[in-house]
Design a protein around this nucleic acid. Structure first.
Lengths: 138, 138
DNA sequence: CCTTTATCCTATAGAATTAATAGGAATTTG
DNA sequence: CAAATTCCTATTAATTCTATAGGATAAAGG
């Protein structure tokens, strides 16, 4: 399960991708996505620090994608907001950490399964870009 | 990410699958799996209520799998302990719930992606049985 | 029977995470 | 200068997670 934060981030970025190049305020995004405005602000500020969006202050300010929509994947966004997508850290390439209860990782059947799970998940999330998300639906 | 509870449940059941038909106490499982004993007890009690294991009290008591190891999948166990495996409830067949912020599910690109993600995850977790887990590793 | 060894049951508690909200400072436009 | 906006720092309420505590209940073996 992903958090609301990650979901809202995906939603916000998809909205920005749909209005490519246009300056879009947090308020506008919040309305279009039914996202709590203040919560969205903190999310956008994080996306800004992570260089996914560029912001402009002042009236008629707002946010724009910092990259091409096809250069940002859903996996990138979810990892930024929620951390690794692997079901266990011992199966994560990006956030690896050994289980304390584990005696021999190489022989752990659960870990092996979770590495397969992560791979399966990645085969979707790391291939879907904002461009893909933006063009489906409305 | 799955919880420790789900991980311990998988571990415990895999241990039981390896010692098929043998009565195995919580204590023994805890030692073999490096699982906190008391925590494991509550997990086993839940697995018992859910009919995955059968218990016997008293000295020389313990737990045994209630079904054949190839009749219990990792997906079953994880869902019992942690709930749906889909990244969003709106994409879950087993725990479906609409997102409050969603205007039209059928047109939601994120939901569609999450349904693909769930499917990918399921293609691993719902195919791996305790038998598979038991025979890998030591 | 009595001791030992288990499961079983209920409650509790501390820590971490989640999902926001509050309030105002800083900046830009017109 | 006014209005609109991002930006920054805190705080909070709720929930979930990860256990632990303490004892009641039951079975087996001598």
């Amino acid at each position: 399960m992903i958090t609301n934060k990650a979901k809202y981030a995906l939603k916000a970025l998809t909205i920005l991708a749909r209005h490519s190049k246009q300056q879009f305020s947090a308020q506008q995004i919040a309305e279009e996505g039914n996202i709590p405005h203040k919560f969205l602000e903190t999310i956008l500020s994080e996306l800004k620090n992570r260089k996914l969006v560029v912001s402009r202050r002042g009236s008629s300010g707002g946010y724009v994608l910092a990259k091409d929509p096809d250069e940002i994947t859903a996996g990138d966004v979810i990892r930024m907001m929620d951390g690794p997508i692997a079901p266990l850290l011992c199966a994560s390439p990006t956030g690896y950490r050994r289980c304390e209860d584990c005696e021999d990782e190489e022989l752990c059947a659960i870990r092996k399964m979770m590495m397969d799970s992560r791979k399966a998940l990645s085969s979707v999330l790391d291939k879907r870009t904002l461009k893909d998300l933006a063009k489906f639906g409305r």
